[in-house]
Design a protein around this nucleic acid. Sequence first.
DNA 1: ACCTGAACACCGTTCAAGT
DNA 2: ACCTGAACACCGTTCAAGT
Lengths: 262, 262
Amino acid sequence: MTIRDRAPDQLPPPPWQRRPRPASRRRRDPITVDAIVETALRLLDSDGLDRLSMRRVADELDTGAASLYWHVGSKDGLLDLIFDRVIGEHEMPEPQGARWKEQIKEVARAQRQAILRHRDLIAVSLGRVPMGPNALRFSEGVLAILRAGGVPDRLAVTGHLLLIATVNGFTLDEVSGPRPDDAQPDDPQPDDPQRGGKEASAPPSADAVAGYLASLPADQFPNLSAVARYFGDDDPDQRFDLLIDLFVEGLAQRAALAAPPR
Amino acid sequence: MTIRDRAPDQLPPPPWQRRPRPASRRRRDPITVDAIVETALRLLDSDGLDRLSMRRVADELDTGAASLYWHVGSKDGLLDLIFDRVIGEHEMPEPQGARWKEQIKEVARAQRQAILRHRDLIAVSLGRVPMGPNALRFSEGVLAILRAGGVPDRLAVTGHLLLIATVNGFTLDEVSGPRPDDAQPDDPQPDDPQRGGKEASAPPSADAVAGYLASLPADQFPNLSAVARYFGDDDPDQRFDLLIDLFVEGLAQRAALAAPPR
DNA sequence: ACCTGAACACCGTTCAAGT
DNA sequence: ACCTGAACACCGTTCAAGT
């Protein structure tokens, strides 16, 4: 993953020959697909998906948007590359047979963390069938663990697909759902004066949600208002662990049924 | 859900007074938020999310985009309304105590179907904490079933959250993943000459995926290439049922542990 | 082989002005 | 109270032309 893989074999032109650039910019790096991907991912992390544009990436690299198209084909192609880069952020463990249940849980947790490190990325996964090199390595690793654990092939494929769907689905809800109660509930935010009110107004805090649910008319929503308080102190980490536990245990039961242990 | 809720108490101006309209258009309906939501949903279903714009909705209603803002506030507000409309497409069953496991499965299946009826809608759910009237009724119904089945309150809340995440997650993968093998694999598509190549090139068929996986170098991907064939004949309906089974059974076990049946 | 400026066909949103 | 046209600040992508 070398960001600069071309030797700096030619000096930049002297200042008086340079076209006037938009004020202060570091010297332009050579354009590489790695540089593009890295820049785009940084922009995605810092400014969010709906501020990620080809023009802004290009600007950051000190070029025009058109120049990117020679390297990545389209914005969609760029998103593919970003997605695969993130999938590859952790390595798959060697399968250890009997420890397969723990290993699947580890992989699931690692994948959730990778997504959480790049929150808006989950939205990118939407129209995509991940088939980049890292996605393939991920699938290979999961299948290796399941088969080493004695899960029959057909069930292993299904389980592998369900694992991906489950982790993605949970993390999707987590990322777009109410925030755990960290930030103060009504900080007006400096609010970028540039754009209208586009930023998809920050989600409410878990406590705000719990409060709202508790305030609902009890005759129309008896259950929701009765249990409202539990919405407040729900812990995503715990909830995720429960889900993965249910999933892996259930899968193990089916595996034992389909191919009873020798 | 009345689409026109204003009496036609004033005739349209005679033709010679009308400003020239973009050619052939039916007589303009009064603008209502229901009409806006309905039009937008129709557009979403027929043309996909990235062709859904305020301008196109407005055009369909024979106005300018600016006029919509008085009714729905923003595009984001409109998407909220669309989302809640679809959540309300099916009614929640009355809780039947002991049948709770079947009922949860029914609700899950119905919710998946609602999403599948409006494929691109899943992308809309992303930044949203669904809190519209129909979303609340949905949550209320799920909690009612779980509690009637004897699931303790705290676990019921967690289970309800996990159910939503699971259904959304599965359906998300299903919608954006490879198509079941219906369409011919290499039809060039008439391809709307209007836009570049924006349409997020159609996902590959399940068979195409299986074929590609089988062709992978077996030394690098021994497991993936060994089980490739099972990727071809995997049935989403079956897979969904398996996932929901695992989930409900696991939940029932925890419920029994937490509060042993009287 | 790689990069560029300029153009095309779009966006969401605001706002002063109209009825 | 409701609707409008025009403007502002953006988009992704193409393409002929440059080096």
